[in-house]
């Protein structure tokens, strides 16, 4: 918290309007791929993935005129780095009432980075049900994958250095919508989210 970082080395890569347009496009792509909104379930990964999933669901309702179930999926208990830090607090998991069996589940997260969170999410989903298909939507793909995982729907590809940090802000949680990049070589402290 008390780092010597000046506000200058934080830059905005997506503002509110750009995020809104990206999410609208992603919503269209999801519906196009699924040939409609039937059977789609959006599962956001806490914290910000859940807010993004809700925003995408609103847009799908505007396009298709029907509600899409939205839930959240906490992957903490399935992470592969649990023993590298003190035990973390759990975040809410809420699976829509109709479950995910035989549905098209779209996982929604804010930033795709190493891919380890998504691997954990796939494991977590395995214990909950058997979807017909699983797809991945992310607002930002910043590269540096460590596992063979890719996103089906990407708001924006943002090439980054590993020493940079990507911050996604959503208005329901942070007061405004923005994607920020901060830090350069040297300021790197691997903070999960």
């Amino acid at each position: 918290m008390s780092s010597a970082r000046t506000p200058d080395d934080t830059r905005t890569v997506l503002d509110g309007a750009e995020i809104a347009r990206a999410l609208t496009r992603v919503a269209h792509e999801i519906v196009e791929r699924a040939k409609g909104a039937d059977d789609i379930v959006l599962l956001g990964i806490p914290t910000r993935g859940v807010f993004l999933a809700r925003l995408i669901a609103e847009r799908i309702r505007a396009i298709e005129g029907r509600e899409v179930p939205v839930g959240s999926l906490d992957v903490t208990m399935y992470r592969d780095d649990l023993r590298r830090a003190p035990a973390r607090a759990l975040l809410p998991t809420q699976i829509p009432a109709d479950g995910i069996d035989d549905k098209i589940v779209v996982l929604v997260d804010d930033v795709l980075y190493s891919g380890r969170t998504i691997r954990a999410a796939l494991d977590a989903m395995n214990d909950i049900g058997r979807p017909r298909a699983v797809q991945l939507a992310v607002l930002v793909d910043r590269g540096h994958r460590e596992l063979p995982i890719r996103a089906d729907f990407v708001g924006k590809n943002i090439p980054t250095s590993k020493s940079e940090k990507v911050h996604v802000r959503v208005s329901e949680h942070d007061g405004d919508d923005a994607v920020l990049i901060s830090g350069h070589a040297g300021a790197a402290e691997a903070e999960a989210r």
């Binding site: 208990m77 649990l82 023993r83 590298r84 830090a85 003190p86 035990a87 973390r88």
Partner: peptide, 23 residues
């Protein structure tokens, strides 16, 4: 059990930290 065993053992001054860190 999760909170005691799930993460690394830190901040107790016990010499278990190295083991926990490397898994």
């Amino acid at each position: 059990l999760y909170l005691l065993l799930g993460g690394a053992q830190l901040g107790t001054g016990e010499p278990d930290t190295d083991d926990a860190d490397t898994g």
